[in-house]
Design a protein around this nucleic acid. Structure first.
Lengths: 128, 128
DNA sequence: TTTGCTCCTTCCAGTCACTGGAAGGTCAAG
DNA sequence: CTTGACCTTCCAGTGACTGGAAGGAGCAAA
């Protein structure tokens, strides 16, 4: 099948699939006319990558997970460690964003938001 | 003062201050030897930017907030709107990361993480 | 004076993961 | 024969820095 069909079936943009090929993450056969030609196995790999992507893994992590997936001698410990490293990153990011959210929420509630220039948000940014 | 001192006092890397100058966000005087020369007012602006940065605003938002800060005829409504747009972004990002975290947490708990190859994490990535 | 050190300058390239767009080739339907 | 949807490659841009090279400035110690 053409890249467009593979894109629809993996829910990855065609551009992204070409990019993944360029960086050696996935590959495909080629037809005589130069068009990429994907089979079910290729689509399966693309879907695997699409799911890792939706969980926020980095490209290098997709690569690692794909390699583990294809290695029958892998240990589940290695997979779990990759997932644990990633969830730690996700949690750190959440904590950071939550502290921003909290600070912003305080500021927004302190600000009248009317036609006057007085603004605790600017005051806070300008303090110190 | 030199850029190094301004960097220490604003808690922004010197490289970042030069970058902000390049994009027209801040500016400074120059000494005869070509070195940038910062005064208290400059440091104040840099600190303002550093705080906006720590709240996760984008560079274009720092620019907008600085302009509002410097405009005595601003309305606090405009500042509050900028903050509200930003907090909505932050909340959307938090929600996205939390849904990733939840999915990852399930997977990690389902995985034995031992020497065997069987792994629900890979199974889930490969499903469909 | 020379050495050594820290700080400063500019410029260029790289990061991450795409994304957009230009210019042109392929193919089936009408 | 044209139209339109698809495909190809290549190049450039995104955001917000960050790293590094190559070289100049300024000051203290030997």
């Amino acid at each position: 099948m053409n890249i467009g069909e593979a894109a629809r079936r993996s829910r990855l943009p065609a551009k992204t699939i070409r990019y993944y090929e360029e960086i050696g993450l996935v590959s495909s056969a080629r037809r005589d006319n130069g068009f990429r030609d994907y089979d079910e196995k290729d689509v399966h790999s693309l879907r695997f990558v699409a799911k890792a992507r939706s969980l926020g893994f980095t490209v290098e992590e997709y690569r690692h997970l794909l390699a583990l997936y294809r290695d029958p001698a892998r240990s589940s410990a290695e997979v779990r460690e990759a997932a644990q490293r990633h969830i730690a990153d996700v949690r750190a990011k959440i904590a950071e964003l939550q502290s921003m959210e909290k600070a912003l929420d305080h500021l927004i509630h302190a600000c009248a938001g009317d036609g006057r220039p007085d603004c605790p948000i600017l005051d806070q940014l300008a303090s110190n």
